[in-house]
Design a protein around this nucleic acid. Structure first.
Lengths: 235, 235
DNA sequence: CGAGCTTTAATTTGTAATACATAACTGACT
DNA sequence: AGTCAGTTATGTATTACAAATTAAAGCTCG
């Protein structure tokens, strides 16, 4: 459920493998990778495939290659923290409370602002999509259905901002948090306890009340956060 | 000034060239690229170099390759909007008022929240860096010096949040907006007119007053926004 | 004769292997 | 100390073949 990272290509596998090693800290920043020929042989792929993978990692800011010097792992500040893969690798390696809090903090910043923007700028079609998602949440009878509807609701709100940068940021954060949501809902026992919150947000967006939308969304996220915190502490 | 994108590698150039074409809309989403052999010949590079470039573009979500089918440009929703290159290409091709507003909106969301978080969590060293940047702003005698100090100030504030996701997002946005800042400052005539604003933010962070920091930062950004708007309308 | 299934062929990307070019560091030689 | 060649890594090019997927050809059966 966490990540259906299906990769058909060989270099894709190499990207995953090396990416995990680097982000997971098994190859420390500043360290040099073995030279391409050796590494390729060790990973049982051709140098061609390895190089294609390295270019991708390079684009993500993880490594840096120079002639004669070799390829070395770049310092963390240069990593593309907002890259979906990098985020996923971090989640896989450091599921620490600390990192989850950082993700949640981003969400707390983005979503209320997005709700306000949506209330200001949404068109009829975008509102309809939010309503559809809400209806699906209300109709959900099991955790699985509720989770997907919930995600659809938030995505629809973000879409209604008409700011694709915001949508993109949300989707990256949300994907990374993915698993924790279900846990949060299942711990809450009654998974639909937050339905009234969603209703209020929906209403505010429908009535074009930005400040109301912001505040209700903020309350909702704060609620969800305390759930996630309670949860991660246990794990 | 806008982008010192220095690329020594051949495939790097190819990435830039194709990236610009795609993001600029000259190759529409859904369209197929010429097959690798042809395209390589046409761009006067080897298929190897071309493929390395394609893997990078693929990682940015711009294209998608499948055997027999060929390589086609993916739909815009799949693009990594928060990738520095993608953003730069968009800025180069659509310097429309519309897109700049989206960037500014992101800034309006991020920075006040960051200022609040910084006021809450900054340590002594981080505060010192902010103060140093402020001092440099106060001492600046020309636009160039003031700009770099200004950027350093905002970056120091973001760093003080101890949330690298936020820092990363800021740096991406800020880089994209880059050029507009100088214009904004130069249009304002007296480039240091916003110095008092910065002082207030600095003080709030020093005194650990999150809400004050948030509000003063918000005011500052709103000010800067109206300048940028006035400016882009003219251009 | 035509519909539907199977097989075959063609095309494009994927992978490998080899060779050489180029940049940058090393050390020796002047 | 400075220059120059040699060493060693990545960078680029070329060739060959593998794999996948589409499309067409062919074939069977109603």
């Amino acid at each position: 459920m966490v990540k259906p990272v299906i990769v058909r290509n060989l270099h894709g596998q190499v990207v995953q493998e090396l990416g995990r090693l680097i982000v997971g800290g098994e190859i420390a920043p500043g360290a040099n990778l073995p030279r391409e020929e050796l590494l390729a042989e060790r990973m049982k792929v051709s140098r061609t495939a390895l190089r294609e993978a390295m270019k991708v990692l390079s684009a993500k800011g993880l490594i840096e290659s120079r002639q004669k010097t070799g390829t070395r792992v770049r310092d963390i500040i240069h990593w593309n923290q907002l890259d979906a893969d990098v985020l996923a690798w971090r989640c896989a390696s450091m599921p620490t409370e600390d990192f989850v809090e950082k993700l949640v903090e981003m969400r707390e910043v983005i979503e209320p602002a997005a709700a306000a923007a949506a209330a200001r700028r949404r068109d009829a079609g975008q509102l309809a999509r939010i309503e559809t998602a809400y209806a699906a949440m209300a109709a959900a009878t099991d955790l699985e259905a509720w989770s997907t509807a919930d995600l659809a609701f938030h995505e629809a709100v973000l879409r209604a901002t008409n700011n694709e940068l915001m949508t993109s940021l949300f989707s990256v954060i949300e994907t990374a948090l993915g698993g924790y949501f279900q846990l949060s809902a299942s711990i809450a026992g009654n998974f639909s306890y937050s339905l009234p919150h969603h209703k209020k947000v929906l209403d505010a967006i429908r009535r074009r009340q930005p400040e109301v939308a912001r505040q209700t969304m903020q309350k909702m996220i704060a609620d969800s956060r305390s759930n996630i915190r309670r949860n991660t502490r246990k794990a």
